[in-house]
Nucleic acid binder design. Structure first.
Lengths: 363, 363
DNA sequence: ATGAAAGCGCTAACAA
DNA sequence: TTGTTAGCGCTTTCAT
C-alpha cells in the first residue's frame, strides 16, 4: 500500500500513454477536495450569487491549489455558447488588417472572448471559406474586416444566424463600423483646392466594384463633389485606376504623366497608392510639393516617414468599436433593449510636406 | 395535431427562445435518418476504414441533406484534442507579425487546425498573459512568434506540457525556426566593405537583451566579425542604439551625426531603423548613396519603395515552417520517429540604390 | 444555499 | 462491418 489513499492519484498530474500530462484536475476533483458537489463548485467559480462567501472562498482556495482551469469544451457543450468570435480578414499581412485586429483583440479579450482567426487569402481561399463555412458551431459571432462581400457571401453569413459585424462595409442587418469616406475625400480635395489647385488628378480603385464595399466609390464621389462645389469640371483624363496597391499607384501615376493634361496635384484614394505615385514622380524628376502636390487617404504608418499629407482614419478604434457592437448583441440584456447597429467614425486632415500652394505654370 | 410526426421537429431547424436557430442537426439526427447507429455515422464521416463505401455514401448524403456539421466542442470533449493551435504574437500590428501569421495560417488551416490568437501588447498585457496562461485546455500546441522570452516565461510555457514552437528564438526543447542572423549581418557588412567603406556605423538594438532573443546580439556579432575579418577595428563611437523602431533609428542616426568620427556607410540591424536613419540623413542634407551608404536587414515591404539595400529574410516561410514542425509533433507517427526541431532558413543580399562605392573624403 | 441527476454531442472500447 | 454503451467535464433544472 502506498501512503496515498485510493484517491491520491487525483492530486497528481495524470499522465496518459503518450507521456503528455492530460487535462489537469476537473471540477469533480475540486468538489471532492472541498467536500461539496460539482454544482456548487461550478456556481462558486462562475461567481453566481447563490453561494455563501465562505464556501466560495474555500472552493477557490482548493481550485487554486489544484491549478484547476475550466474545460472550455465541456462548458461549451453544456451551454451551447463558445465565447469565441470568428474574425475574417482578406489578408492578414496588410497594415490595415493588423491595426483593426489589434482593436478587436483588445476589446474581445477583455470581455473573456477568444478570437478564431480566418485569413481568406486569394480568391480560391475565399471561395473555399464561403463554401465550407468553417465557423458553424465554433463561434458565437462573426467579424468581417473590410472584405468586399458579394451577395451570395452575405447570404451565407446570414444563414449562420449569428450576430455579424462588418468593418468598412455595410450590408443586411449586420452591425457595421466605418468612416465617412465621402466627407474625408471631399476634405482632401478641398485642401488642394484651397491651395489654389484646379488640375487635380485622381488615382482611384479598380474597375470591379462589389456592391457592399463602398469605400472606393464613396471616396471617388467625395472627389467629384468637392470639384463640383468649386465649379471645377471633372476631366476623365485626370483619373487613373491603381487598385489600392503601391504598384498600382505607380502604374496609375505613369499613365497620368503620359497624358497631355498635366495635374498640379494628385489625390490618391489610399496612402499606398500615393506612395507609388510619389516614387514615380520623383524618378520622373518632379519635386514634391514644389512641382506637384500629393495627398493620400488612411494615414498609413509609413505616411509620417514619407511626409505625406493625408486623411487620417481611426483604424484600431474601428476594430474596437465593431467588437463592442458585437458584444452588445451577445449580452443577455441586448435581447430586450435596442442596440446601435451602424457607427461612423470621423476622419481628420493631416497636413504634412507633400502638399503646397500651386505655383504659376511654367511655359 | 400537426402533420409532422412526433420526431418531425428533428428535421426542421430548431428555434430557441431567442429566435436564433440553434445547433442545427446532430449526429443522432443523421443516424436516425440513415438507419444506422451514431457510431457508424461518426466513423463514416471521419473517413475511418471500417465502413462500407455504400453505407458511407448514404450517410454522407443524409448529412449533406440535413446540413450536418460536427460539434467541435463535443468531439473535443470526447477526444481531448482541440485541433487548435495557440498563436502568440508580441504585437499584431507589425509587418513581421502579419507575414509570419500568414505562413502559419496557410499550413495550419490546410491541416484542419484552428488558430487561437493572442496579441500580447504592452508589458502589462504580457504579464497578464503569462500569469493566467489562458491557453490551458484550449489548444494542442503553442506558437510563439518573435517574443523575447524571459526564463520564467519559458518555464510557464513548458508547464503546459504541449508542443511549443518558436520563431526568431530558441529555448528549451521547443521547436524553432530562425535565420542565420550572424551570417546575414556579416554579408551586409562585407557588401559595404566590398564597396570600399571602412568607416561603417552600426545602428544596433536596445540595451536590454533577453537571453532567448538572440537576434540583436547575433546581428551585431556579424558586424563585428566582418569588420575583424577585414582588419577593420571596431570604434564604439560608430555604434548607436535604435531599439528596432523607425523613431529609434532616427535618434540613433542623429547621435552618430553629432559625433566627430563620421561614417561613410551605415548598417542598421533592421529596415525600420534604416528608414528612420535615411530620413535624418536626407533632412541633414546628406545624399544617399552619394554621401553615405545605408543598408538594412529584413527586406520590409517598404524597402523596395524606399530603394533600400538590405538582407532579405523569408518571413512567411518561417511561419509556414514552424507550423509544419508543430504539426509533425502533433501527428501520431511522430511519437515513434524522431523529428527535426531546429530549422535555420537562409538570407539573401538584395542590392538596391542605397549603397554605392565610397567616394574620396572631402576636406 | 446546496445536492442529485440528467443531459450537451460526440468518440472509443467492447461486443456481436 | 456495425451496434451498444460508457464516458469526456461541464451546466442546469429540480429537489431539499
Amino acid at each position: 500500500m502506498s501512503t496515498a489513499d485510493s484517491d491520491g492519484a487525483v492530486l497528481m498530474p495524470r499522465i496518459d500513454q503518450t507521456g503528455a500530462a492530460v487535462g489537469d484536475s476537473s471540477l469533480t476533483d475540486v468538489a471532492v477536495r472541498a467536500g461539496v458537489s460539482t454544482a456548487t463548485v461550478s456556481r462558486a467559480l462562475r461567481g453566481l450569487p447563490s453561494v455563501t462567501e465562505e464556501t466560495r472562498a474555500r472552493i477557490k482556495a482548493v481550485a487554486d491549489e489544484l491549478g484547476y482551469v475550466v474545460s472550455p469544451s465541456a462548458s461549451r457543450l453544456a451551454t451551447g455558447r463558445t465565447h469565441t468570435v470568428g474574425v475574417i480578414v482578406p489578408s492578414i499581412d496588410r497594415w490595415f488588417s493588423g491595426q483593426v485586429i489589434k482593436g478587436v483583440e483588445q476589446v474581445l479579450r477583455a470581455a473573456g472572448y477568444d478570437l478564431l482567426f480566418y485569413n481568406l487569402g486569394d480568391d480560391e481561399g475565399r471561395a473555399r471559406f464561403f463554401e465550407a463555412m468553417p465557423l458553424r458551431r465554433r463561434v458565437d459571432a462573426v467579424l468581417v474586416l473590410s472584405v468586399p462581400l458579394q451577395d451570395p457571401e452575405v447570404a451565407k453569413l446570414r444563414s449562420l444566424h449569428l450576430p455579424i459585424g462588418l468593418v468598412g462595409a455595410s450590408a443586411d442587418t449586420f452591425s457595421s463600423v466605418r468612416i465617412d469616406d465621402l466627407a474625408g475625400a471631399a476634405t482632401a480635395v478641398r485642401h488642394l483646392i484651397g491651395l489654389g489647385h484646379r488640375d487635380i488628378a485622381l488615382i482611384s480603385g479598380g474597375t470591379d466594384v462589389p456592391p457592399h464595399f463602398t469605400t472606393p466609390t464613396d471616396r471617388r464621389r467625395g472627389y467629384l463633389d468637392a470639384l463640383a462645389a468649386s465649379g471645377i469640371g471633372y476631366d476623365p483624363a485626370l483619373e487613373a485606376a491603381g487598385d489600392f496597391t503601391i504598384t498600382g499607384g505607380e502604374r496609375a501615376m505613369s499613365h497620368l504623366l503620359g497624358r497631355p493634361h498635366h495635374p498640379t496635384a494628385v489625390f490618391a484614394l489610399c496612402d499606398e497608392m500615393a506612395f507609388g505615385a510619389m516614387r514615380v514622380l520623383r524618378t520622373s524628376g518632379l519635386r514634391i510639393p514644389r512641382d506637384i502636390s500629393v495627398i493620400g487617404f488612411d494615414d498609413h504608418e509609413m505616411s509620417d516617414l514619407l511626409d505625406l499629407t493625408t486623411i487620417r482614419q481611426p483604424v484600431v478604434e474601428q476594430g474596437a468599436t465593431i467588437a463592442r457592437l458585437l458584444l452588445d448583441r451577445l449580452s443577455a440584456e441586448a435581447h430586450t433593449r435596442p442596440h446601435q447597429n451602424e457607427v461612423s467614425l470621423p476622419t481628420q486632415l493631416v497636413v504634412r510636406g507633400s502638399t503646397a500652394p500651386r505655383r504659376a505654370r511654367r511655359a
